[in-house]
């Protein structure tokens, strides 16, 4: 469980996140959704300690996120960003196995783990020797996912992982992600702009606006019992859902 207690983040006069209490359930998928600049990435960055909260404390499964503990915490979190964040000078295998090697885990087991993850993310084993520049956008996201899952983390954070992909590839990956989430049963936090994607992949949806959480619930909750006019507006703006 990830717990935000009175957490806020300010950049000078700009409030990226107003004081917030939030509980993200273990083993479930939670989607963060909202307009651009509403503070979704800020929430993820706070969890992995890329930025420090201005006020409040964050706990992951009972451990507080502090500078001293941050390296250990990061190694138990997988993180995927929009363009994958793969290092261009390393092959797919070297990207995915970077931490494995760095922590000096056994090489033979690394190969097995990679093959297992290729299977899970439906990435061809033959592509492991390629460099990011030699992979398609969808393949890059699969490798990025492999890298995030390599050390079998308890928590998986995804910041618009499908944002840069075309609709067909995107739909394919959505299906694969859903299977992976169900199979692994990890705590997943997913940032997306797309209400349909959130509804399809997530157990709980957190709708944000201007650094505040407006409503948390299932897609049904948000659609049938909107907390305010903004929630209905946000849902009706997604045309495909209006047609349902």
């Amino acid at each position: 469980m990830i717990l935000f207690r009175d957490v806020s983040k300010k950049y000078d006069s700009l409030t990226a996140l107003a004081p917030t209490d939030l509980e993200i359930e273990s083993g479930k998928t939670t989607a963060l959704i909202g307009s651009s600049g509403c503070g979704k990435s800020t929430v993820l960055r706070l969890i992995v300690g890329l930025i420090e909260p201005t006020t409040g404390t964050i706990e992951i499964d009972g451990h507080s996120v502090t500078p001293a503990a941050i390296l250990d915490i990061r190694r138990r979190i997988g993180y995927v960003i929009q363009d994958g964040g793969l290092f261009p000078h390393l092959t797919a295998e070297e990207n995915a196995g970077l931490m494995w090697r760095y922590l000096k885990r056994p090489r033979t087991e690394m190969r097995l783990r990679l093959e297992e993850l290729c299977d899970l993310t439906r990435f061809p084993v033959g592509g492991l020797a390629r460099y990011p520049a030699e992979l398609s956008g969808g393949q890059r996201q699969r490798v990025s996912l492999m890298r995030a899952l390599m050390l079998d983390p308890q928590v998986l954070l995804l910041d618009e992982p499908l944002g840069a992909l075309d609709p067909l590839v995107r739909a394919g990956l959505q299906t694969d992600l859903k299977t992976i989430f169900q199979q692994l049963g990890k705590t997943v936090v997913l940032v997306t702009h797309d209400m349909a994607e959130a509804g399809y992949l997530a157990d709980a949806i957190v709708l944000m606006r201007e650094g505040r959480i407006i409503q948390k619930g299932t897609l049904g909750d948000l659609r049938d019992r909107p907390a305010d006019a903004f929630v209905s507006e946000f849902i009706s703006a997604q045309r495909s859902l209006v047609a349902i």
Partner: peptide
């Protein structure tokens, strides 16, 4: 910046 963040988030010293 995104690659710097990726390197940091992996848990490398």
């Amino acid at each position: 910046g995104s690659l710097r963040e990726s390197a940091e988030v992996l848990g490398l010293e």
